[in-house]
Design a protein around this nucleic acid. Structure first.
Lengths: 154, 154
DNA sequence: AATGAAAAATGGGTTAC
DNA sequence: GTAACCCATTTTTCATT
């Protein structure tokens, strides 16, 4: 993960459809050396996959919600986590510090779908003690582009 | 946005590097018709761009944090929002229901960077009244793949 | 469906460390 | 001796008719 790799990754985050010709300019390398670098970044798991950036409204999931979840101690979190992993409405599920156990990020079609999901899939899970649901009214910023640190040679 | 478009978009979310040959199978169309569909999905803004899925640890931002922000009423949220949009550590900034005004999702290198960011860039902004910072200890699920609803013809 | 153009994978050869 | 890069060729993929 040197300076060249970092430049490649930054360029690919901006435009994942960039060809090797364009990437080679960003990297200051030949086309084949650039191809070699990108391939190794995939092999090493730095690049985990190639995706499209999809408009949530067009995808039919305009509603964004966060649900905090508290579990009863000593209970089976595994069942709850399995349910979260299974449902595609769950974009994220984090174990967090503070008063709550989990923070779940959801994308759904509408309020009715949210009500059904929280009631059936969250509060219906064994071990769930308390929940709190928060709606996003607007999202001034929402990106999947990660900051790439300058430090840390491999 | 018919059934075929939905199939294409689902396939491209799983593998954005899929060629037209592979996509045409998923869509049940000819290669050229598939190319036409993908082009129109881009033009209509359904596909907003092409990205890579990058490993946050390799990118040098392993620390994931959420910051709740309350603003003083009648103050200039614009300055705060401009700062959030400017900083690449800010992945998301949502206006939310409940006791807080904003929920900010951050990716940073370490605790020192978090302390500096919250202190300087969040609490340092005019109009910010109160904040609460929560750390993610683990992320059992974290994806950018959106659920694609079956309903709503265009 | 077929063509021409463009891009990407491959193999061999070169240099620098 | 190893690793990174460069160049030329083959193969695949993509846009046009």
């Amino acid at each position: 993960m040197d300076e060249i790799d970092r430049n490649l990754v930054v360029a690919l985050q901006e435009n994942g459809a960039a060809g090797l010709a364009e990437l080679s300019k960003a990297a200051g390398l030949s086309v084949s050396a650039t191809a070699e670098r990108v391939k190794r970044l995939e092999e090493r798991g730095v690049i985990r996959g190639w995706r499209i950036d999809l408009d949530p409204v067009a995808a039919g999931c305009p509603l964004l919600a966060f649900v905090f979840v508290a579990m009863r101690p000593g209970k089976d979190d595994a069942t709850f986590l399995r349910a979260m992993k299974r449902h595609e409405a769950v974009l994220e599920c984090h174990t967090i510090t503070g008063a709550w156990c989990y923070l779940v990020k959801l994308r759904l079609a509408d309020i009715a779908a949210l009500e059904a999901f929280v009631s059936d899939e969250v509060r219906g899970q064994p071990g769930v003690e308390r929940t709190e649901t928060i709606l996003a009214l607007a999202s001034p910023k929402e990106t999947a582009i990660l900051p790439v640190a300058a430090a840390q040679e491999e």
